[in-house]
Design a protein around this nucleic acid. Structure first.
Lengths: 336, 336
DNA sequence: GAACGTGATGCACAGCCGTGCAATGTCGGG
DNA sequence: CCCGACATTGCACGGCTGTGCATCACGTTC
């Protein structure tokens, strides 16, 4: 029975003395089987360690039950939280997540989606990189539904989940102004995705409403190290900022450490800092950072809800969620 | 052509004016097809957006190309790094990762493995929780190879990847003694896996060799918050430790923050701290922590190498790797 | 006792692919 | 001109499941 692969329904049927159909029906909810044969089948299946072959099942059914997560830099606090939430929700919805890594280049995103199509994934959730129109069409033609998280293009048959980044940026600006910050700065990374740009724009707009123009620095990828560099740049200037909005918590952590350990500045006495994402480290006592909370579970919930509703058709849909502000202790009126 | 699902080989054959077999052969490396028909097939496939159905392919072949990663608390620095490395390596080896979440209970590990069997996964890499012997047997009977990372049981047909945690713990002990730490402490979490226990035992043994017995605290799950609680407990005692080995960096971060922000202690002047894992935050300037580096890529490499070698048979195998010490600035001779 | 509805069961087929085997066509050599 | 070698191609089958349809047994009602 274990000739080369796994135990199949035929093996179970043989052992239970019933037809293979009976085995199939036993494991198909809603099918018609008598309690007696069902019992026999289950007994045999347990004894042999039988499990329905989802690959073959996906061949017949329209759905495979697999959903692809396309992501770059999974080893990053925000990403890993989102992926964790998504896989959790997928699982409770009876689906399973297939992880596909990307280096964010177009080529690798394309490869990832091709991989997803190859496994007849029910959907692909794109967290990183941006498939182009032709690619999206190919997915659709293969019955692959596309979910774009915090990306900006909109295409038929696709759902977008977006945050009100712009509004959050504006709110950061108003907050800094309200505590009396006279020299605000904007720190962002060079790998600007749609949402990072929106945050920056919102911040600029919020300041502009009061006639203020921020100092700006843009550097490298979104990372702690970039944050250090951003801070070092800003604090080396003749006129130092006394309030900084960082488009990402990771950057903010770096900025705070640069301020404290390289320039002996006090946060928040000498410098107010606002981040974005509310990664776990933002809540650590070493940072205690005021930031905006990404509604990670809401995002995940929204994606899975859309995927589970068979109604979700060919229309473009955009789900807007809002990022709440989390008040901690990195923002305060400047010292004397 | 897009009646309900995806485009199949028959569609391509029809469009290219060849037999379905020709299509299949075009996408099967090493099969015999003339350049002319191959070109026709590829043209048609591109036009239609055809991709080989890996589900069906996995039905015929012995291998599905899917490897399951069974993990709890993915949203944790060490886990996410390991998972990221594993998916990366799997991908370059031509396989793909299926993520299955666990809450670490036996029931959910069992569910995860059943899920993996259902999808005819080539292997399952277990990072969290511990399948029991019966479960492991069921996997084997279904042709599922099992890789256990930092778990301790050994079963036929299974590979274990282990660190020399014991030795590392001992080395932490010797290090603290060498810098003149007179009151060492051991901080560990209540959710003690095999490797955490080994680190603690190694530390105790290392101290015992010099006739020293550490203070000990054990609390909650492995998290930053637990670290805070551990530190608060230790520093509230009449006799405070002046050197602490934390079985995990996450715990160490909490301990350091408790020391600094709740008890005004200086690290390393008043207190030396050693962690384990070398998570990114350990290198942040706020912590600058001496710790042991988990050879994440070596671990991933070893797993994938074993999976790719068809020779890897029914023998128990154990791969031992060593955790290098990373010197940073959280360890120093106690101040005057 | 006959007609009829109902639930259980099995046959056979579809879904998509890889591959052994036979058939076909082509080319070179004798 | 014939024959063998060889590459190419297609048929048919196997792999595993779900399901429409026909069959059958059984119980009920008149």
């Amino acid at each position: 029975m274990l000739q080369k692969g796994a135990v199949s329904a035929r093996d179970v049927a043989l052992a239970a003395g019933v037809s293979r159909t009976a085995v199939s029906r036993t494991f198909t909810p809603g099918a018609s089987v008598s309690p007696a044969t069902r019992a026999k089948v289950i007994a045999a299946a347990d004894a042999l360690g039988y499990h329905v072959n989802n690959l073959a099942r996906g061949l017949t059914r329209a759905e495979s039950g697999i959903v692809a997560l396309i992501v770059a830099e999974l080893d990053t606090p925000y990403r890993s939280r989102l992926v964790s939430a998504l896989t959790d929700r997928l699982q409770t919805a009876g689906k399973v997540a297939m992880m596909i890594n990307t280096d964010r280049s177009d080529a690798s995103v394309e490869a990832a989606l091709r991989q997803a199509i190859g496994y007849r994934t029910d959907a692909a959730i794109v967290l990183s990189g941006m498939p182009d129109r032709a690619l999206a069409d190919m997915c659709l033609r293969n019955g692959l539904r596309l979910v774009l998280i915090n990306r900006d293009e909109e295409w038929p048959g696709t759902i977008r989940v977006r945050l009100d980044d712009e509004e959050a940026g504006a709110r950061a600006a108003r907050t800094l102004l309200r505590v009396g910050c006279s020299r605000p700065a904007l720190a962002s990374s060079a790998s600007a995705t749609a949402s990072l740009k929106a945050r920056a724009n919102g911040f600029r707009a919020g300041l502009a409403a009061e006639g203020v123009v921020p100092m700006e620095v843009v550097l490298g990828p979104t990372s702690y190290e970039t944050g250090l560099a951003l801070g070092t740049d800003l604090f080396s200037r003749d006129i130092r900022p006394n309030g900084i909005f960082c488009v990402t918590d990771l950057l903010a952590c770096g900025v705070i450490d640069a301020a404290r350990h390289r320039f002996n500045l006090r946060v928040p006495a000498d410098l107010s800092v606002i981040g974005f994402d509310d990664i776990p480290q933002a809540g650590w006592e070493a940072y205690d950072m005021t930031t905006f909370r990404q509604p990670v579970s809401d995002i995940a919930e929204a994606c899975i809800a859309w995927l589970s509703s068979p109604a979700a058709g060919m229309d473009v849909e955009t789900i807007k969620l809002s990022a709440e502000m989390v008040w901690r202790d990195s923002v305060a009126p400047p010292g004397e």
